[in-house]
Design a protein around this nucleic acid. Structure first.
Length: 850
RNA sequence: GGAUGUUUAGCUCAGCUGGGAGAGCAUCUGUUUGACGUACAGAAGGUCACAGGUUCGAGCCCUGUAGCAUCCACCA
């Protein structure tokens, strides 16, 4: 027997290990159609947060549902080495021990990183198990494993041979703390407080000077020109002359280009080609030199003269002081301006001219835009993808790190030769590039490389392209778009058929969860308090696809209450039918009205749940199920069954029990993808069951046939009206009442026991034609009189209220039906429906007025 | 500067091709009715941001305005 209360801890215990050991998670049944997903590989940097919980729950619901639907489901797990992120963490850990990565050297450092990976992979496995994820661990992959590594080398070499990967000098975003290049999207812009320095530049050969403003004075040593707009009347006459750089006294040409905004600052701009991407472009245009005045550690170099060796900020301070002393400082303004920070280290990014590896984006992006067949859900995210693709700059893929795929380029310093090879090169005089690849270079191959590509493995043949990818919208640029263009380039197919996009999870006030605001919620805490099923249900219901959700504890509690409701309804059914009960095939001809009614509602629920599950609209699917469970099953049929079971013979009692079990079984299987643990527990309590709910199939509709639904509706309305009447007349809920029902509906009369029980009827009579005593309730197929000591006044009041109601309804209906345009243009069914309603209202009013 | 989302009950949110506004929580009234007080029976609560338009009919479609949020690009 089930416990009185649903206890998540007890219910969850042992189930996951059992499923796993029985091999239920392992794909490969060739008799079925495949359905495949790969998990977005979490970084091996730390704990999984609620966002992961949400993301993986959506996938798990999908996997379990598709399995119920008879698919051979492959959900492939794996993790990402997360180059920068992990290396930053490992370095931070070492730093606490007083060691730098250089103390250890590459080999030893990588050993430490692998140790780190092992520890965190273990944490992640534990969390996946807690979440109940149906992952096929026999196929688990890691972005740095041998297979992925081969795929990465193959891709690098192929793109290189095609000219789609090149090495070049460009301005890149440099993280001086982690000492590595970053790609554009690894830079986050924040509004920082800064200063705007106005300096006076003397114009050579004149008495004039002009004022140039900058936020980064320390880069003045790398300046090669000052630019103004050619149309700027203030400076027009000076164009072509030289000005003196107040930082070092050197002469700079005063040049003109329409790029310069007349309105901004002083309208005169210094040009630092090696330290600013826009200046770099200008310098290219005018064939100017690129002068680096800083080293990679953000310290000034020999170009800066006496400032050499200073940190960039130190230099800034000293230089400004010196310029002020020379009388060339005009003013300093406090400003707030966007400053690029490294996503991982937070360091202020330094635009820096250096030699890096790049992926040439245009050809790949155009192919992706032209050929991608990925269907985004919701559709609007296709535009997000498109917009980024259309504007994507070349992708800087080299990182000056150790943790990652080492770039397979080999240099001969003497000859200047470069060999790119997917096999190790051991030629004398050659040495391998020290850098590794951007972590996203390998994740971009995830959907196919995890299946064995570039080999044509059976898994690749069978499970690629993936059926579905599930991820949050913030990762479309980083990952989704790159998977799509790499997949199209290398497999000639889109990596997945559909891409389901969800939002971000926020705190109760709508703020982004983050470490800095300390508002993060650990999913494990939630699971320990309310159970994983409640968390899963909360995460995937009550929200629309693609929208953000807020974590609200009350909602998790509500979810838990709902599961408890299902638990207790199961308890009632199982206690009622008994352990020895043997369910049998339903014979529609033997069903009673109420049985037909609940089964019909079940059929509708199965239909709707299926429709929305198939469309990945889990929130809507769950709403239909919820309403059925609460209103139709628990509050109504289940209560009715108590009366039926008391008042019928053995054969009919068995039919009712059979219906109870049938409905319960369907509910359990439908809720199970959302709440697998309680689903399994209840399923295994059913009188007959398979070894596990994981082997079940989705419930199908039950043959019921036609029945008098009006009679059932009227019964439920009567009960509701009587309850309502008692409350509004301050009668106790169990106050006895005398009822008289005027009806010719034999089916309604056959339900008299239920009416009697739920109205606490003292007496209940049936008559053929209407009477005129008591408080009157009018239905489609009956009129009910409540005969008790209510005063005539109250009776009249109630009657007046009803009459008014119907009069209003009739007026509304007549108005619509007198509109010729409505009659002419609205669909016929709508018109007929309205006419039928009007007729009913009139009949009821007439009955009321008798 | 470009783009997207959002505005519906006190709060958090659903509302799927246009056809009589919904849920959970909170509030109020009742209830030892034979699974569930993590419950039951009821009640109250909304000019669906605003202004136009299309339509027989608009929370839903179109245009505009405003607030809130997010993303992209960024000015030296």
């Amino acid at each position: 027997m089930l416990d009185k209360r649903y206890d998540p801890k007890k219910v969850e215990e042992g189930k996951y290990e059992n499923w796993k050991s029985k091999g239920y998670f392992t794909a490969g049944d060739k008799t079925k159609n495949p359905f495949s997903m790969v998990i977005p590989p979490p970084n091996v940097t730390g704990k999984l947060h609620l966002g992961h919980a949400w993301n993986t729950t959506i996938q798990d619901i999908t996997a379990r549902y598709k399995k119920l639907r008879g698919y051979d489901v492959l959900w492939l797990p794996g993790m990402d080495h997360a180059g920068i992120a992990t290396q930053a963490k490992v370095e931070a850990k070492l730093r606490k021990e007083g060691i730098s990565r250089y103390d250890l050297g590459r080999e030893k450092f990588l050993e430490k990183a692998w140790e780190w990976k092992a520890e965190y992979a273990n944490n992640i496995h534990e969390q996946w198990a807690k979440m109940g994820l149906m992952l096929d661990y026999t196929r688990e992959r890691f972005t740095l494993d041998e297979g992925l590594n081969n795929a990465v080398l193959h891709v690098f070499k192929t793109l290189y041979d095609k000219g789609l990967i090149y090495r070049g000098e460009r301005i890149i975003n440099y993280d001086p703390e982690l000492k590595t290049a970053l790609s554009n999207i690894e830079v986050v812009y924040e509004d920082d407080k800064g200063k705007f320095y106005y300096f006076k530049y003397d114009v050579v050969g004149t008495n004039e000077s002009l004022i140039v403003a900058t936020t980064r004075p320390e880069t003045m040593f790398g300046d090669t020109a000052v630019f103004v707009n050619p149309e700027d009347p203030r400076y027009k006459h000076l164009i072509g002359k030289k000005v003196i750089n107040p930082a070092n006294g050197e002469e700079l040409p005063l040049m003109a280009d329409s790029y310069v905004d007349i309105e901004f600052g002083t309208g005169a701009m210094k040009c630092t080609p090696a330290h600013d991407p826009n200046d770099f472009a200008l310098a290219k245009k005018y064939d100017m030199p690129f002068i680096r005045c800083m080293d990679l550690d953000a310290k000034m170099n020999e170009i800066a003269g006496k400032y050499q060796g200073m940190d960039r900020y130190e230099c800034r301070e000293a230089l400004v002081k010196d310029i002020e002393a020379s009388g060339h400082l005009v003013k300093i303004e406090d400003i707030v301006h966007p400053v690029g920070h490294s996503e991982r280290s937070g360091a202020v990014v330094e635009p820096y001219l250096s030699k890096q590896w790049f992926v040439k984006m245009r050809p790949l992006a155009e192919q992706a835009l032209a050929k991608s067949s990925v269907e985004f859900i919701p559709e609007r995210f296709r535009d997000t993808f498109r917009q980024w693709m259309e504007n994507a700059d070349d992708w800087c893929i080299s990182r000056q790190l150790w943790w990652g795929h080492r770039i397979p380029a080999y240099y001969n310093d003497e000859t200047g030769d470069v060999i790119v090879s997917d096999k190790p090169v051991n030629l004398p005089g050659y040495h391998q590039d020290e850098d590794v690849l951007d972590t996203w270079f390998s994740s971009a191959l995830w959907p196919f490389a995890t299946l064995g590509w570039p080999e044509k493995t059976p898994d690749f043949e069978r499970y690629f392209p993936n059926s579905l990818m599930v991820t949050a919208y913030d990762i479309i640029f980083f990952w989704v778009s790159r998977m799509i263009f790499d997949s199209l380039e290398f497999t000639k197919e889109s990596p997945f058929e559909k891409c389901l996009i969800h939002g971000l999870i926020r705190d109760a006030h709508g703020k982004k969860m983050s470490k800095s605001s300390n508002n993060g919620i650990d999913p494990i805490d939630v699971i320990n308090t309310y159970g994983v099923d409640a968390l899963r249900y909360f995460l995937t219901t009550g929200s629309a696809p693609g929208q953000d959700i807020r974590y609200i504890e009350e909602k998790v509690i509500a979810s838990s209450n709902y599961l408890n409701k299902i638990w207790n309804s199961a308890r009632y059914v199982l206690e009622t039918v008994g352990e020895d009960f043997k369910p049998f095939k339903i014979d529609p001809s033997k069903l009673g009205l109420l049985e037909k009614d609940i089964l019909t509602k079940l059929n509708n629920t199965i239909k709707n749940v299926s429709i929305y599950m198939d469309k990945y609209e889990y929130s809507l699917a769950s709403t239909y199920l919820y309403n059925f469970v609460y209103d139709d099953f628990c509050s109504t049929y289940l209560e009715m069954s108590k009366v039926t079971l008391n008042n019928s013979d053995e054969e009919y009692r068995n039919i009712v029990k059979n219906v109870l079990v049938t409905v319960l079984r369907a509910i359990i299987i439908m809720i199970y993808p959302f709440a697998p643990f309680i689903g399994e527990e209840l399923y295994l309590s059913l009188p007959t069951h398979l070894e596990s709910i994981m082997l079940e199939v989705f419930p199908s509709e039950v043959e019921v046939g036609q029945y008098n639904a009006t009679a059932v509706d009227t019964l439920y309305k009567m009960i509701s009206d009587i309850r309502n009447y008692k409350v509004s007349n301050k009668l106790a809920p169990n106050a006895k009442v005398n009822l008289l029902v005027a009806t010719k509906d034999e089916d309604l009369i056959s339900l008299k026991d239920h009416l009697s029980r739920f109205s606490f009827a003292k007496s209940l009579g049936f008559i053929e034609t209407s009477d005129n005593s008591g408080v009157k309730f009018v239905y489609d197929n009956a009129t009910m009189y409540l005969l008790d000591d209510t005063s005539d006044e109250e009776k009249a009041l109630k009657k007046q209220k009803d009459i008014e109601f119907y009069k209003n309804e009739i007026a509304r209906s007549e108005k619509i039906l007198s509109n010729e345009n409505f009659l002419a243009k609205a669909p016929k069914e709508k018109v007929e429906l309205e006419k039928a309603k009007l007729e009913q209202y009139r009949a009821k009013l007439e009955e009321l007025l008798k």
